[in-house]
Design a protein around this nucleic acid. Structure first.
Lengths: 152, 152
DNA sequence: TATTGTTATACTCTATAACTATA
DNA sequence: TATAGTTATAGAGTATAACAATA
């Protein structure tokens, strides 16, 4: 058997994906800094925006994180008064998380930042290319059954 | 002015990019675990494979990391005996990093894991789609002058 | 003074596991 | 016993800044 060529970092599609993805996320994180929230916090706030209230364990499932991680995250959001936490009426163990008025007001501002950020990076592609990119990414997500919301 | 629709997480290409990219990286990290190295360490080892030796500051530039971060990384690689560190003959401040024999033997194994990992995720795309995906990602990299090697 | 590299400190994200309270 | 949630501990990755040695 012939000895095989050692592949380079740039030989992998994963390399290019990571390069672009990390820049998109890092730039977004910088934008969010001005509003005092992290990317993970933005995801929580956006998740809560569409529902009345959500249990930490449900949030953990939706975000593909452990309960411990969610606990720490929500602690920070509570300290910033962006969410509220209440004991569940029925189940003494359960809690429910919901947006505070302040948090609810913030979400549209953050969504606008997310829009700007996405535009900044992907306006270099044509509308057709953007559709194509999304189609291919969703194809991989479906094929591999990727479910969690990416944060890191 | 009409009130604007609040965009969803999934409205952004950055979301899909991050979702796939994080899964590719996390899965790769699991594969590397078996060899006792992290993704960041793999990048360092692969960078050193093609050169005789490299100063930490050059490595920091190439990887888009601070010198402090590289220092910590190379400390771990030294502890694992995968690299060597020598004082520079000419400049008393400077050091040079290079692969140890053990590190050099390991790189082809890690490269094979990287190949497998990339295949696993992108075999769901046709050869033509893969070319297209790479072309679009490189287009963004060029347009936005993204230079660093992504690690996180 | 400027540069190279290390070290100290800190923060985010994440996981595992121990723990408390309740069911 | 099982579940919901918190807390403790740990480790990777990152940044900033202080520091030592040398230029």
């Amino acid at each position: 058997m012939a000895s095989r060529r050692i592949s380079e970092l740039t030989d992998h599609l994963g390399y290019w994906l990571r390069l672009v993805s990390n820049h998109v996320s890092t730039t977004f994180a910088r934008r969010l800094e001005g509003k005092g929230v992290t990317v993970a916090e933005w995801v929580v706030l956006r998740e809560l925006y569409d529902v009345e209230a959500l249990a930490p364990s449900r949030l953990a499932e939706a975000m593909g994180m452990t309960r411990g991680a969610i606990s720490k995250l929500s602690e920070r959001l509570l300290a910033k008064a962006l969410i509220d936490r209440e004991a569940d009426a029925g189940d003494g163990r359960a809690h429910m998380l919901s947006l505070s008025a302040k948090g609810r007001r913030l979400v549209p501002e953050l969504a606008a930042l997310a829009d700007e950020n996405d535009k900044q990076f992907f306006e270099h592609l044509s509308a057709k290319e953007r559709v194509e990119m999304r189609r291919m990414l969703e194809k991989i997500v479906d094929a591999r059954q990727l479910k969690d919301i990416p944060v890191s």
